[in-house]
Design a protein around this nucleic acid. Structure first.
Lengths: 207, 207, 207, 207
DNA sequence: GATGAATGAGCTTTCATTCAT
DNA sequence: AATGAATGAAAGCTCATTCAT
């Protein structure tokens, strides 16, 4: 029991150390970018020795991958729980709620946004694969929602794949430019409403 | 005149050499990414010696900047010539034509797309500045078109900045995923039409 | 206290490493000259890896500057402590003692001499500045001694600046040719005496 | 005869070209120093193509060697013609005249001085060998004069080798500091007289 | 003879990773 | 477990020299 306690406490200390290094790395990567960040920067920010870093992570790439996985998981959970079965809340309502949650999640974590939109592309094949998988998941989700809407008569005839990509892209660009580049002082609810209206009704006046 | 001829021929040879190195660099950067590409890769691909490379370009960064400038100029010219004065062709028609030209330009140069969408963000401040300026130019163009449409009664009330970003993002994502990732065998005209419809009318059935 | 001991021992190890690299560099620079010496030569001679070199010194130029500073400081200290106040030992005696100390210091370190007389001119502006300052200091010291001697009636009327330079040059040349080029087997005391006699009385027989 | 004329004219053109490149190189080497001067600098200053340079000189080192040879020859001739036979002008007079000629020659050619005193040491073994031979020649000349003077009863007992070196060094230092570093506006005759007095009589008042 | 584009060995320096303590 | 000194492969770049025209 003494051993268990010691082991458990050690385990907790390890986890805490990991988290400390991860947090510091998130901040530094977001601030400087992946290639401009050296392992020296990471260990200085984390307040640990170089060797300690490699005790917890295999490489500079590995910690970035782990950060990215965390970000994508967090974002993914934000958009989960949507219900496309009959009897569920109407799709537009669900979309708006999800959109709002996503914007909030991104807005709450500027570092996450910076990494996602400014650093995570073209780093290496593994990262590209993960990002592609994530966005593919989003695309499929949106496309399924559109096709469900078509069956229910809400959504017009269209190439749902292209439309899903267009919708995804509209959100990404607005997020990247409004939340990341801009001050982030925008009213998230208003942005979500604008985005939803844009994607639902387009820009022309009602015919 | 013999001297002129020799000088001219030498000049042409130089231009050709430059082009040869630029072309090779475009391909290699698109294939491997900026950071994964060494000057050794570039000179091997171009079939010249290391010194020759530096005879024509100041640095690895310099040739990338030059490529990027070329790409942005080419794309920029594609979207020029839109006329928002009264009496000009209707905005939707102009938009569709421009969209089609842009898609064609991008489709004609896959390497260009790869660099633009996968490498050109977060490399250095100069590149970031240029990209931001380019997309800002596009956003302003779209936004002006939307506001013009509002004055003419075609476009509904909205936050035109957010809408412009949304429209820009929808095009970028579709291009990136359909032309770059995908086979690129899609019918450009159909994609352009879908994109335009999406941005004009959204996804819901006409009310 | 165990930590202190460990830290102190590590500190000492670092100092030792630095010294090891400095010593090797002194030998190599003296043997081959600055420009003929590559960082590869330095690390091979020191028996460390390339990276280790840059752990202790910023650049090839930096380690040379540090060596030069050390040499000039050592030499400078050798000629300090001369007393020109009344009541002090007579100037000739002080001069001979200083001369002897300088010759000994130089003779004890052939590498020092080689660098000082064969490498340290025209390398870069920093080095030139330091050398000039050093020799200017020597010139001023000699000139002051001469002028003091004039006031005391020992030294004849003359342009003391020119004379100081001449005296300095006579020492430099004899040192360079007798200690550096030659075997260095000469009797330092005899050389010092000859040099002093030369500078005090010249070459002609007493009138 | 036409062939001879053509050949001769061509020969003269070659010589002229050589001289043009040599002159330019002297100026550039004196201005920037050997290592700071690239072949590009040399051909730009000479106004010829890179290939042309190698038509006339084997290498960058070769042209420096040739320049140095010229400088040393010119200086050597300046101090030739001294007559140590009986019946010739007295040694001091000859020495002063030679000293004056040397100072004038050096003063007339600042570039020569700069190269001789700031660049020509430690460049390579060949250069070192030549410089050593030159100064050895000077030393031997001075030493012979001193020994002749001893035989004639003008020069006191001394180690003539050390004295010759001391005398040589006094001239070198004064030249280097007064003519090269300084403005060169000094009165050459006065400097020559001071130097001669220094070397003949030393610094002490006449006993 | 003159040209200057082309060459490639060689340079200094960086930095992710290892390992003895 | 933690440390940080040590490593060395690999990077970007220079420049004396060559050679096809």
């Amino acid at each position: 029991m003494s051993t268990d306690g010691r082991t458990r406490r050690a385990q907790e200390a390890r986890e805490q150390r990991r988290g400390q290094i991860l947090d510091a790395a998130l901040a530094v990567f977001a601030e400087q970018g992946y290639h401009q960040t050296s392992v020296t920067d990471l260990v200085k920010a984390a307040g640990v020795a170089r060797g300690t870093f490699y005790l917890y992570f295999d490489s500079k790439a590995a910690i970035f991958h782990e950060l990215l996985d965390g970000l994508l998981t967090e974002l993914g959970e934000t958009i989960q729980g949507v219900d496309t079965r009959e009897g569920a809340p109407p799709i537009p309502t669900q979309l708006e709620a999800t959109l709002h949650r996503v914007l909030r999640a991104l807005s709450d974590n500027e570092a996450l946004c910076r990494i996602l939109f400014r650093e995570a592309v073209g780093l290496d094949e593994e990262v590209d694969r993960k990002l592609r998988a994530f966005y593919e998941h989003l695309r499929a989700y949106i496309q399924a929602a559109l096709e469900n809407g078509q069956r229910m008569g809400f959504i017009r005839e269209m190439n749902t794949r292209t439309a899903a990509l267009a919708g995804l892209g509209s959100v990404k660009e607005v997020v990247a430019r409004t939340l990341v580049d801009g001050g982030g002082e925008e009213d998230l609810r208003a942005v979500a409403a604008e985005l939803l209206a844009y994607n639902l009704r387009g820009v022309v006046v009602r015919g």
